[in-house]
């Protein structure tokens, strides 16, 4: 009996002392909870579809942040990984008849391998040269797909794919659950020793090498991990949409993820995720109002520009700095209403 009670007690203690003490963590916790229970009391297929798509793109945005935000390898061709995941899963499903539960993970694995392979030539490049080089990769893959239309479906892609589950609510959970787990996992990677090295590579790669760290290995690891998560999101996208086409490799998608990343705040993981949850449904919400239908993309652009103008670090760091204070002694965060640090007791202001 005592053992049975130990787990809930531990969970409650963690929740009380690690999550509910900070507004940002509380927000993420309750938002995740809301996402998990939403279909139980609101099952509008249109809303569930938008959130499903948002969840898929949130994984994609978080994967970009791991590579570009944490490691500083700013990728302008991130749609490559998304497309590789989508096409691998679609082609295996279409040509071999394999079920999506097998092809989706395989799509992610091949995308991880692609990340590793793409990372090799990119090791020699830095800054804007790296970004421009990465821009070329999805274009090359698109050209290859068009060169073999009988195999790849050419301009139309592969359509009529099977879904992982049939029901709308089922599809919702197929996207939302992996999103919550993977985004938490990516955030933990960023918070780990490996994440610290990623940070160090971004800040000063030479110093990092001088400290005895094999930066080549870590940069390749960042490419591979980023490819894995982006590939999984691409594969989920293909089976949710039931189509994997050249639009999964479009330059527009690569830039879209950069916008999400910068809008939300890079090197945060939760920033790009929140950005997707704000920006992706925004255009849909605007489409529901006649007066905004025609100018919704303009409104979208104005909002992004205003945020970047007044919050150059991105939305989430700006909000976080308003609602939380960093302890000058122990560097831990506290809710802005506190006068003393919750951990070391130092004066906060």
């Amino acid at each position: 009996m005592k053992g049975l009670l130990a787990l809930p007690q531990w969970l409650w203690a963690q929740l009380r002392h690690e999550v509910l003490v900070l507004p940002s963590r509380s927000f993420v916790f309750f938002a995740a909870l809301l996402l998990l229970v939403l279909p139980l009391f609101y099952d509008d297929p249109y809303v569930l579809r938008i959130i499903t798509m948002t969840a898929i793109f949130a994984i994609f945005a978080a994967s970009w942040d791991l590579l570009a935000g944490f490691t500083g390898q700013v990728n302008f061709g991130h749609a490559l990984f998304f497309g590789v995941g989508a096409y691998t899963s679609a082609l295996l499903s279409h040509h071999l008849g394999w079920i999506p539960w097998i092809t989706v993970p395989l799509g992610a694995v091949l995308s991880m391998a692609t990340g590793f392979l793409v990372g090799i030539p990119c090791l020699r490049l830095r800054g804007s040269y790296l970004s421009l080089a990465t821009l070329a990769f999805p274009l090359i893959l698109t050209g290859m797909l068009f060169a073999f239309p009988d195999f790849s479906g050419g301009e139309l892609g592969i359509s009529g794919l099977k879904r992982l589950v049939v029901s709308t609510v089922g599809n919702y959970y197929v996207a939302v659950l992996p999103m919550l787990i993977l985004c938490f996992g990516i955030w933990k990677i960023g918070d780990s020793n490996t994440g610290l090295i990623f940070h160090a590579i971004r800040e000063d790669e030479v110093a990092c090498r001088a400290s005895g760290i094999n930066t080549t290995r870590y940069k390749l690891l960042a490419f591979a991990l980023s490819g894995l998560f982006a590939g999984l999101s691409g594969a989920l996208y293909a089976h949710f949409m039931r189509v994997a086409g050249p639009s999964a490799l479009e330059v527009a998608l690569s830039f879209q993820v950069v916008i999400w990343g910068i809008f939300g705040g890079i090197a945060t993981i939760y920033g790009p995720v929140l950005a997707v949850f704000l920006l992706y449904p925004l255009t849909e919400i605007l489409a529901n109002f006649d007066m905004f239908k025609e100018i919704r993309l303009l409104i979208f652009a104005v909002i992004v520009l205003l945020v970047l103008l007044f919050m150059p670090q991105g939305l989430t760091p700006w909000i976080r700095d308003k609602i939380e204070l960093v302890c000058p002694r122990c560097k831990n965060r506290n809710v802005f209403t506190r006068h003393q640090c919750r951990l070391c007791g130092a004066e906060l202001r």
């Binding site: 509008d44 297929p45 249109y46 579809r49 938008i50 949409m241 639009s247 255009t283 489409a287 529901n288």
Partner: peptide
């Protein structure tokens, strides 16, 4: 955007 198109048709049908 292809996803925009599918969202739009879903909205037309269900909303």
């Amino acid at each position: 955007s292809v996803p925009d198109a599918t969202n739009a048709i879903e909205r037309a049908i269900t909303r």
